[in-house]
Amino acid sequence: MKTKTLIFLLFAVAASVFATKEFSSQSQNDPWTTQQLLAPADLANTLKNPKSPQPIVFSIGMQAVIKGSIDIGPVMEKDNLDQLKQKLDKLPKNSNIVVYCGCCPFSRCPNVRPAMALLKTMQFTNYKLLNLPQNVKVDWIDKGYPVSE
């Protein structure tokens, strides 16, 4: 009985270590932390309140859907990534920056990783990734948040 219990415990520990390793390696692949994810509702509230300090919002995907955002284009393309770098070169390192794509879930998005990696490499200190788990339609447009004209 004791041997069986011991084997079960060893198996459980091994499984949990494996699961943790898997989880952490997936997280390590993404060039952002959970704290750097910005909730769409928070950005929408900020944009709706002109008295609130406004972030610089870059669209790094297919189309600048969010009101007031700067259209860089998909940064999976080198020219667009270079254009983002040029814009960032002119900004102080502590600028309040938000980037978003919203084509598809992060796991499939070809644009969020190059943009966040660039911000990290350039040593910006106050940048966020807009958390659009499905896409910009479901998580922004359908919620009635401000869109560009």
Partner: peptide, 17 residues
Amino acid sequence: LKFWRSPVAKTYNIQGL
């Protein structure tokens, strides 16, 4: 060519591609 802002995406209640 309206990306996710296409009225068709709304009409057909598309949640993802």
